[in-house]
């Protein structure tokens, strides 16, 4: 595709786009609080938020204890997944790279599978308590993700060819799913159901207490990602050029893998393996702003990612769907066409 005239999105366009995205974020956030199986009016919602009318304590609990943490979780997951996806795509110079493809999500899945399927089958009462179960799942997912992360970091220096590293990640994914399948075969019905539910991904499992941990870890990951914009830009030219520009490519590779992996591990631990957000959002941002400059594309990807997951969270809780559609059903519907479009468009 040859473009003879390139329209540069002007500075004003970018400012307006940023403001619109932030406004959209607030609107989506309010909509997330206000709608669901029970729809609230704006005045009712503000009454609850400002703690003035405690007329209906049940509604207040729904908004503050369920919808609020769910919306915040969705927002942070979108931010982090988009940032992690962009980091991976630049590092591997591959438009289809994202943390889930590297096997980090599957590592987390394996950790959770081992926990739920084994302990859930052996000691049926073990995972019944809500809080202890969530904490345990979080820790298991994090350990699983971290193990894959360590593996990848160990081999990152040996697998210098980005394609090899990508294949390595995909194979790790196959290996962990193979183990999961074997575990599933022996697991009890209850444990299996619990694992399948986790695997469909949800923003609803993070309560207000866990939210703090989730937000802090997510923010740390995003801040580190934002600090990497200069080396990320250099990597657009390939590792040799980046090195010639004075960047310590070996270190940067490892740092990028750690940051993207950390973001994925945290989000997968708290929300399950959310698919397609990390893959599709950076492409949307590049399309919209017609640039690859990470100083623009990274913040915009983060903004778009948050808006996307808030929108998804709004859709999945629509009363039409019984208020509880799996996250991945919608992200795949939105994300897969974007990926297909890119495969068809890109000259490999």
């Amino acid at each position: 595709m040859k473009r003879t005239i390139d329209i540069i999105p002007s500075f004003t366009f970018r400012i307006i786009a940023a403001i619109l995205l932030v406004i959209l974020m607030f609107v989506l956030f309010i909509l997330n609080l206000k709608s669901g199986v029970v729809n609230l009016g704006i005045s009712e919602l503000f009454g609850i938020l400002t703690n003035e009318s405690i007329s209906d304590s049940a509604l207040s609990i729904v908004v503050l204890k369920i919808r609020f943490p769910q919306a915040i979780t969705a927002l942070m997951a979108g931010w982090g997944l988009a940032a992690g996806g962009l980091l991976m795509q630049t590092l591997f110079r591959n438009p289809l790279a994202d943390p889930s493809i590297l096997g980090i999500s599957s590592g987390a899945s394996l950790g959770v599978a081992i926990l739920i399927l084994i302990s859930g089958s052996l000691f049926p009462g073990f995972l019944s308590g809500d809080i202890s179960a969530n904490v345990a799942i979080t820790i298991a997912a994090f350990i699983g993700a971290a193990m894959v992360l360590v593996l990848i970091s160990l081999f990152a220096t040996k697998l210098r060819n980005p394609v090899n590293l990508l294949v390595f990640g995909i194979m790790i994914g196959f290996l962990s799913y193979a183990v999961v399948d074997i575990l599933k075969f022996y697991a009890s019905k209850d444990a299996l159901q619990k694992y399948v539910l986790w695997g469909m991904a949800t923003f609803a499992e993070v309560d207000n207490r866990q939210l703090q941990v989730f937000l802090i870890s997510g923010f740390i990951g995003i801040v580190f990602a934002l600090l990497l914009v200069k080396p990320l830009n250099a990597l657009l030219l390939g590792e040799d050029y980046a090195a010639n520009l004075g960047h310590k490519v070996k270190h940067i590779r490892i740092i990028i893998i750690l940051v993207a992996g950390f973001l994925t591990a945290v989000i997968t631990a708290f929300c399950g393996p959310v698919a397609f957000v990390g893959l599709a959002v950076p492409h949307l941002a590049r399309l919209l702003f017609a640039t690859s400059d990470h100083r623009q594309i990274l913040p915009f990807s983060i903004l778009i990612g948050g808006n996307l997951t808030l929108f998804v969270n709004l859709i999945i809780r629509l009363p039409v769907f019984g208020g509880n559609l799996p996250v991945n059903a919608i992200t795949a519907l939105l994300g897969a066409p974007v990926v297909i479009y890119f495969i068809l468009k890109t000259k490999f």
Binding site: P95, K230, N233, A234, L237, S292
Partner: peptide, 28 residues
């Protein structure tokens, strides 16, 4: 190098500006 970088959405100005990396600050 012999192989030219392949990067979508990168403008000539931004490409040449990469040459300033050794001189610009932390955020480039």
């Amino acid at each position: 190098f012999t192989d030219r970088p392949y990067t979508e959405h990168l403008r000539v100005y931004d490409m040449v500006a990469m040459g300033r990396h050794p001189y610009t600050g932390f955020m480039g």
